[in-house]
Every structure is written in C-alpha cells, then in structure tokens.
Design a protein around this nucleic acid. Structure first.
Length: 833
RNA sequence: GCCCCGGUAGCCCAACUGGCAGAGGCACGCGGCUCAAACCCGCGGUGUUGUGGGUUCGAAUCCCACCCGGGGUACCA
C-alpha cells in the first residue's frame, strides 16, 4: 500500500480526502487500459475530446462525470476498458487568442492543455494518460494529410469553384456551423456568399449508406440525432425531366418530386445565380439582359439574414426565353429567381403553381397562370379551393385531371406511370436527390493541417508523396495571422515556394488548411496507438478495440462531427483499413448545464464557476450532483440542484465505513437478512440502471441502501453486524462511479485498496426472493384490500382468497360478479355486474 | 410552417413499459441531541399525472385532438 489514510478521522473532510488520494492514483494509474497480452473482453468508452479552451467549466464537468460512470462501471465488471482523452487543438480558439495577444498559437495551446490535464486529474477522470493525443502536433496531422492523399487518389477529395459562406468583416470563409442565424458566430456580421475555388470531400458519394446505416443505430443512438441526420441528408426521390429550349441546342433537365403534375407546369424557373441563368439571359434582348444583371447583383449582395426572412416576397426576372413541356408541347416562359437554388438538383425547375406553394407564391406575384391537375383533398379530407383564388397550393393526394393519359389515376400511380412514359420516350428518368452537400474542407487560416497538395503549372494538382509528410506548418513568428481573405500561409514565401514532386519544376504549395472537423473524424482510431509512426492506426488494433462501444458527448455535434466520422469510417473501410461500417455503436448525449433557466454566460451574469463549486463542495459532490440531477440527456439547471445536499449524503455514506466494526472478510451470511436483501437488490438493479444510463436512479438506490444501513447500525444489530460491512462495501463500490474520492477513502477504511479496480460483487439470487408479496384486491378497478401471499401462489388460489376477503365482500355487496381478472401474485380485479 | 422530445407534489425527479401514483433528493415544518445553535438523528406526502375525448376490467403509461415548454430545420422543387 502506498499510503495508509488516517482511519480515526472523525469527520468527512473532502479537502483532506482529495489531497490524500490524488497522488496515490497518480502513482498507481488504475485506468491504464490493457496492453496486447490482456485477454479480458474489451470496451471502448469515449468522451468527445475538448478544445484546449482554458480551464474546465461546468459543461465539461457534466460530460466527464457521466462518461466516467460508464467507464468505471465496465472496469468493475471485469472489462479491459479503453477510456482515452486528447485535445482537438487546432482551430479558432487558439488562433483568435494568438491574434489577440500576439503570441504563438502552439505555446498558448500547450499551456492550456497542461492546465486542463491537471484539472481533469483533480476531477478524478478515469482516463488512460498514456494515450493522450493532440491534433496540432505534426505526428497527428501528418496522418490527416496521409488520409487526405488517399481520398485524393480515390476521387473523394477534389477542388471546385463554388459559392461559399463569407464573412465580410473577418475576410474569411465560414463553415456552415459557423453561421448562426445568418450571422458570423464570431463577430455577428451578416454572412454573404463568395465564389471561391476550394477543396471538398465527396461525402455525397456515401449519401445512401449514411442514410440507410442510421437504421442499424436505432435504439443505440438517440432518436433525435438519427432524425437530425436523416433530415440533413434529405434524400428525396422523383424524376429528372428534359425540357427542350427554343433557340438552344441542349435541353434543360429539371428535377421534380412530382412528375405526376407535369401537365400542370405553367412556367420554368432557373436559379438566378447559376451559370445556366447567365447563359439563357445572353440570348435575350438588351433590356432583359440589363434587368437580369441588376437582379443578379441584388441577389448576390443579399446576406443570409435577408434570405432567411419568412414571408419573403418572391422576386425574379422573365428571361424572354421558352421551354417546351415534353408531355404536351406547351411553351413555358423561363424565369430567373433566387427561390431556386443553384446547387440543388440541376438548378432549374418546372413550376406547378397549383400544387406547390412556392411556385404558387411566385405565380401570384408575377401574374402567371395556375392550372389544377390533381383533384385533391388535404389530410383532413377537406377539398381545396381554387389555388389561384385562395393562395393555398393543393399539396394533397387525389385524382389526376387535365393530364391526358394520367387522368383518373391516384398520385402514386401517376408518378409511376409518367416516369415510365418519360423513360420510354427518352425525355426523363427516375432520379434521387440529397440535401447533403459535399464537405468544404478548405480554410483560409493558419492554425490547421496544411493541405498536402502542390500546384504545378505543368502537372496540375500533385499530392505530396507520403515519405515527405508531414507538410509542417511554417513558424507563426513573422506571419500576420489576422483574417484578410487569404490564408496567412500565403505570406510564408519560403514555405510556399517549392518544387513539384512529379516533374521537379518550380511549384507552389496549397496555402489553405483543413477544417478541424477532419481532425476529429478519425481521432478515435488514433487513440489505439497514438505514437504509431508508420501509419494512422494499426488494422489489428482497430479489429481489437473498434468501433467505439460507447460515445459520450453533447448534442451540438449531432450532425456534422458524427456525420463526418461516419463518412471517414466508410471511406477507410473501403480502403481496406477497417472491417466495420459505423464508428460509434452507441451514443449518449448529455444535456447542458444552465443557471436560472438559461445558458450560463458572463454577459448574462449567471456564470457558475466550476473551480468555486469544487472548492466549496468538493469534486465528489459536484460529480454526484451532475449524475443525480436527472436523466443524463436532460439539461441541468444548477439553481434546481443541490451540491450541498450531495456533500451531505457523501458524509453520511462515509460515516458508514467509519462506523463498521467487523473485520474484512467476515462472512455476511450470518448478518441481518433484511439489510442483506436491500444490499443485493441494489446490487442487482444497479447494473441494468447504469447500463440503461439511469444514473440518477442508481444514486437514489444507493441513498436507500445508505439509509437502511444507518438504521441497522443505530437501531438494529449494530455496527458489528457483518451485513453492515457488506452493505458499506457495496456502497463504496457503487459510489466509486460517482464520487471516487469518498469511495476510495471508505474502501481504505474498510481495509482494501483501489476501489476502482474492485470486482463488482456477485449478486446472491436467493436474497432477491421475497417471502411474501402484497397483492392488491380491486373491485371495478378501485383498491378495496390487500393480501400478503407467497410469490408462487396459483391464480385459482389467489382468486378464492381475494373473493373471500373482507374488503372485497364489502365492496361487492349484492352485486353479481361478472368476471375476475387475476395477475398472480400482485393483483386481483373483481368486476361486478 | 415542418420534424423531434418533454409536461407527475412548491422544486429536481422515480414509477419493473397497462396493474396500490411515490423510490431518492431539495425546500419547508415538528421533535430529539445542545446552555443555545450548527452538524447529526428521527418524524411529516392526495396531486384534476398539461387539457379534452377514446381503447381497456384497469391508463401517468396505448390512440386521437388541442394547450404549454424546449430543441432541430427552414424556399432542397
């Protein structure tokens, strides 16, 4: 034993207990995961890794408290648990801090990490400290570059011109998730669009699998996250239809989910900011061209706030061009408008105002004709009025009219029929579309992974050969990191100017860095061997540990991070490096910690400082409060919970161990049977409660056990009863999931060491069997009496007992008995006539 | 607007998935300990289970409609 705690301490002193055990754990490292010769079954429990954002806050405290419960539980259950931690250490926080203070982001980052490590250790996180990784280190981001190169070779990484989110103030591209309500998350400037040549990962290649794979996660992932991913991918099915264009050689293909309404098309619309619109406008008269140019200017200048406004007036320009409806030969005027998106489908639509609300709004604004082709009713069976009059598009189901060969068909039937007709005629085909776009990974920033591409005039885009990786970031010193529309790396001329790996001629490095979501897309694989020098991870390690059995983190990452990790997993699988399809077998989203009903923030003045809570109530009480507050996925309002109450309970539990008078190893069989029954019932139930994430209930049940034990010590058999020792040991083991310091101290007072590694005690089934059960006797559903019966009583016996009972007889009176429902042994319901 | 999730005691929350509405905690009150208090110990729990209907012998639980709260999403043809 490293150190013997002072067992004669009369009072629970959490400060002293923390100081006593922290150095002991530091030396013993109880959570080093097993090395290759460890043959216990494995569990991989993973907390989403943090940004190195200074000290821990209440949100971290909740997340790590909950992840710890799970990891510690599996250790006690005899599993070889991998529970690692690392830092998502590239990205905005460090870069902003570096700009603000004029320091090197690397130094700032590593200082913060050091501070967080010591905070996490104090917080008693059960991490394996041998496996720490930091994504800003070259030995990590080297493998981002390596994977990027593999993606590039397979056509999964490519460069294209596209309209991207642009913050005019910060002069930088923004990821979708950095645009909050149309504003830049950093400076609240309205975001605009800008056309840039950027790198993308082809996530859409896996759209179907990413969608269908969600079904395999049902039950193990929160329904909410599955729904969000489903919506984000947004698969829709319909048809592509080719419309001949007057004065143009090529037809225009449109995508529609409602080919059944083809006869109701009265005009066409192309996205105002698309190349197609510009080309069509060129063929028009000068006045139209001018009008179009003005309109496009206006659209491009619009920010996201304007675009997101509800009840927005429809606007557009008639291009003086016409398309031909392939089913009836009608001439359809072609308009350009911003309500059609350039990067969805083909950037062009057929407009059916009678049956599409957006088209109807446009038709009414521009005074275009409306033709009903589906005689239909809404969900409540109400007939629609004339859409042109009511302004409400008839979006329901019904019978086709005014539609030639489709007349009389129902919607679904008509969709199938027309798709076949178009296909036979060569003017269309069934088609699928997705809301999901490819992932823009270029960032005009310094603090990220350099994109390992060299641009050569002769050879084009040439990946840096594997043996020249990593492409290291140039030193920050001397570079201006302020956003200015171009990556700061462009100014590092010595770095930018290089030779082409292919032809040896002069060439330039790509100056953008990768989105930090690249780092987090595969980090769970790097933990398997964070120092591995000849590959990102070992295939055999992956077979042994991965996928992650239990992932724990905030719902903030419900879409992007989880989607990207899923994409990486599938891509790496197709490269032959993984043999599974999904990275995270189970997911637990913890809620947020709030104060007085809203998110904590300095400006709101409701910030609760973790360090102050820890000083006042202790690590254990804070952790316990997090677990006890309610279901993990619910938000916690710190004003509603009581760390003081938790501390009080811990003191009460701790005193049990202090009071125990029997020796270690004493046989509990001779002890108080009623207490033993509570102990083993608690032990039995706690396992499934923990595994079902009902941590708050486990704590409540542990409180019951503490209360029952206290009672036996004070007014029953007394502190020397062996059952009291057994109960105190079980309390210590269960409590170690939530309050490791108190539990360790108790465990030591009880004569043991390393409660974290204590084996979960076997449940004695015989103690779970109750001698009698209370049976409820109801008459017409109302409780009229109770019977104490043996649990194995037969239905017939119980029926007789119930009918003979006083309460039942009284309630029945002279009424006849219609039927008797017996649910032995707990309930009898007598139904009278 | 659409899609999720939730609504149980003053508050945070349980309730084996259809079977006595109450496990645990907070707060509050009373009693014990104390010269007194804190700590500690003990005792104290009926409320339209958000509302209205339905299914059932029986509904917090299942179904329908609505109300309230939270979250996601937003012209995706």
């Amino acid at each position: 034993m490293t150190e013997t705690p002072t067992h004669d301490a009369a009072r629970y002193d959490f400060h002293a207990i923390e100081e006593r055990w922290l150095p002991v754990w530091e030396e013993r490292q109880p959570f080093r995961s097993g090395r290759p010769d460890d043959d216990r079954p494995t569990k991989y429990v993973l907390d989403m890794f943090p940004y190195p954002s200074g000290d821990l806050h209440m949100g971290h405290a909740e997340a790590y408290a909950l992840g710890d419960v799970i990891a510690r539980h599996w250790v006690q259950k005899g599993f070889n648990v991998l529970h690692p931690i690392g830092w998502d250490s590239f990205g905005l926080p460090a870069e902003n801090a570096a700009i603000k203070r004029g320091v090197d982001p690397a130094g700032w980052t590593e200082d913060n990490i050091a501070q967080q490590v010591s905070s996490m250790k104090r917080y008693a996180c059960s991490f394996d400290w041998d496996r720490v990784l930091m994504t800003h280190r070259p030995d990590y981001y080297r493998w981002n570059q390596w994977i990027f190169t593999r993606m590039f070779e397979r056509g999964l990484a490519y460069r294209k011109h596209s309209n991207v989110n642009w913050c005019p103030k910060d002069q930088t591209v923004l990821a979708n998730e950095q645009v909050v309500g149309g504003l830049c998350e950093r400076c609240d400037t309205p975001v605009t669009k800008k056309k840039l040549n950027q790198w993308y990962f082809k996530v859409t290649e896996y759209a179907d699998e990413l969608l269908d794979g969600l079904e395999t996660l049902r039950g193990s992932w929160p329904d909410k996250v599955i729904a969000m991913q489903r919506n984000w991918i947004g698969r829709s099915s319909g048809a592509d239809v080719a419309f001949e264009i007057e004065g143009r050689d090529e037809p225009i293909t449109i995508y529609t989910t409602r080919p059944d309404t083809l006869h109701g098309a009265t005009f066409m619309v192309v996205a105002a900011d698309s190349d197609l619109a510009a080309e069509l406008a060129e063929g028009a008269d000068e006045a139209t061209q001018a009008e179009f140019a003005t309109y496009v200017e206006k659209v491009k200048g619009e920010n996201e706030i304007d675009r997101l406004a509800t009840d927005r007036e429809k606007t557009g320009v008639f291009l003086q061009r016409y398309g031909i409806n392939p089913v009836n030969g009608e001439r359809l005027p072609i308009w350009a408008s911003d309500y059609v998106l350039a990067d969805y489908g083909h950037g062009a639509i057929m407009a059916v105002p009678a049956h599409d609300q957006r088209d109807l709004d446009f038709a009414r604004a521009m005074d275009l004709p409306v033709r009903v082709v589906l005689d239909c009713t809404d969900e409540n069976g109400q007939a629609y009025g004339d859409p042109a009059e009511t302004g409400i598009a008839a979006a329901g189901d019904g019978t086709l009219v005014n539609s030639g060969s489709l007349n009389g068909m129902a919607k679904a039937e008509a969709i199938a029929a027309i798709t076949e007709e178009l296909s036979a005629a060569g003017t269309g085909d069934a088609a699928t579309n997705y809301r999901l776009r490819d992932w823009l990974i270029s960032r005009q920033r310094y603090w990220g992974t350099p994109i390992p591409i060299v641009h050569c005039e002769a050879c084009g885009e040439v990946p840096v050969p594997d043996d020249q990786l990593p492409v290291q970031l140039p030193a920050a010193e001397g570079l201006d990191l302020k956003p200015k529309g171009q990556s700061p790396l462009a100014a590092a001329t010595d770095w930018v100017n290089t030779t082409c790996p292919s032809c040896g001629g002069a060439a330039l490095r790509d100056t953008d860095t990768m989105d930090t979501f690249v780092d987090s897309s595969w980090y769970f694989l790097r933990y398997l061997d964070p120092a591995k020098a000849d590959g990102p991870f070992d295939v055999l390690d992956a077979k042994r540990w991965a996928p992650v059995d239990q992932y724990v983190g905030g719902v903030t990452h419900a879409i992007l991070h989880l989607l990207y990790s899923r994409f990486f997993t599938k891509a790496l699988r197709d490269m032959g490096m993984l043999d599974f399809d999904e990275p995270f077998s189970a997911l637990l989203n913890q809620g947020m910690v709030q104060m007085d009903g809203s998110a904590m923030s300095k400006s709101r003045g409701n910030l609760v400082r973790l360090s102050e809570q820890l000083d006042e109530f202790g690590v254990d009480a804070v952790r316990l409060t997090m677990a006890f507050a309610g279901p993990p996925e619910d938000d916690i309002d710190w004003a509603d919970v009581s760390p003081a109450g938790s501390a009080k309970f811990l003191a009460r539990a701790w005193r049990l161990a202090r009071d125990v008078e029997s020796e270690p190893g004493v046989d509990p069989a001779t002890g108080d049977q009623a207490l033993r029954a509570v102990t083993h019932r608690t032990l039995h139930d706690s396992q499934e409660l923990v595994e079902g994430f009902k941590f708050n209930v486990v704590v409540a049940r542990t409180m019951e056990l503490v209360n029952a034990t206290r009672k036996v010590i004070d007014s029953g058999a007394g502190a020397s009863d062996p059952a009291v020792r057994e109960a105190a040991e079980v309390v210590s083991i269960l409590l170690s999931l939530f309050a490791p310091y108190a539990a360790e101290d108790m465990w030591a007072m009880l004569g043991h060491e390393d409660v974290a590694l204590a084996t979960y005690p076997a449940v004695e089934e015989s103690l779970l069997v109750e001698e009698t059960v209370t049976c409820i006797v109801q008459v017409k559903g109302k409780v009229r009496g109770r019977l104490e019966v043996p649990p194995g009583i037969s239905e017939d016996e119980l029926r007789e007992l119930a009918l003979a009972s006083d309460g039942a007889k009284r309630a029945i009176g002279d009424a006849g008995i219609r039927t008797v429902i017996v649910r032995a042994p707990k309930l009898v319901n007598i139904v009278t006539a």
